[in-house]
Amino acid sequence: MFWQQVVNGLTLGSTYALIALGYTLIFGVLGIVNMAHGEVFMFGAFVGLLLVTTFQLNIFVAILGAMIVGCLLGVILEQAALRPLRRRSVSHLAPLISTIGVSIFLESLALRIFGPQAQAFPASVAGQLLSIGPLKISSVQILILAVSFGLMLILRFWLQKTRIGKSLRATAENIETANLLGVNTNKIIVMTVALASGLGAVAGVLVGLAFNAVEPTMGVTMGFKGLAVLIMGGLGNVTGAMFGGIILGIAEVFSVAYGSSSYRDAVAFGIIIIILLWRPQGLFGAQKGGH
C-alpha cells in the first residue's frame, strides 16, 4: 500500500515538476512569473486530446504535436505580452498583470472552442495494469514517468553541455553581460518562453492522461500547483523545480490516502506558507531569497 502510494505520487509529481520547470525557466531568464503558463498547459492537453480522438493518432505523436503548439503559443505570448514591456521600464507588476490578461483570454477561448465539460481520452490509450510484485502500474503511469523523466534529463543535459544551453544560463545570470559577450539575448528569451511553454503543453497531455479528464478550468488549478513547486524549489532553480514537483505529488497522494480527498488542493497552499515562513529562498535555493 505504502509503495503503491509512492509510485502514484511519483507519477503525479513528475507532471508537477514538468509544469514547474516552465515557470522556473522563464523566471530564471526574465525574472517574471508567467501567469499564463497554466493556460498554455491546458491548451496542450486539449491539442493532445484532439490529435488522439479526432485525428486517431498515436499518443506519442499527440505529445509531440502538443509540444509544437505549446512552443507556438509561447512565441505568441512573448511577442504580445512580454516584449512590449521590455522596451520601456515599467513596474515589476506589469508583466504579471499582462500575463494574467493572456491567461484569462486563453481560458475563455478554450471555453468557446472546446466547451466547458470535462473530456476524457479514449479507453484504448489507457492501457492495462501491470503487476510488479505487490505494485500495480498502469501503462499510462509508465508512459508519464518515462516522458517526464526523459524530458527532464534531456533538459538538464542540454542546459549543462550545449552551446545554446550555456548561453541561456548566461542570460539568466546577467542579461546585459550576456549581451556584451555576444549572446543574442532576444533570441534566447523567445526560445526560453517557447521551450517552457512546450514543456507545459506536454505536461498538459500527461496530466490529462493521469486524471483522464481535460477541461478549460484545469489551467488555473494546475498552474497554481506549478507556482507552489516554484516557490518550494526556489525561484529560477531548475533542480529545485524537479525535486519540488515530486515532493508535492507525493505529499498530495499521501494526504488523500491517509487524510481527506476533498482538501488535496489545499496541500500546495499549506506547503507554500510553511516554506515562506521557514525557508523563503526555497528548499534548494542557495542564494539569499526574499528581499
Partner: peptide, 9 residues
C-alpha cells in the same frame, strides 16, 4: 472574459 484579457495586455 476575452475582452478583459485583451484590456489587461
Amino acid at each position: 472574459e476575452m475582452i478583459y484579457g485583451a484590456i489587461l495586455v
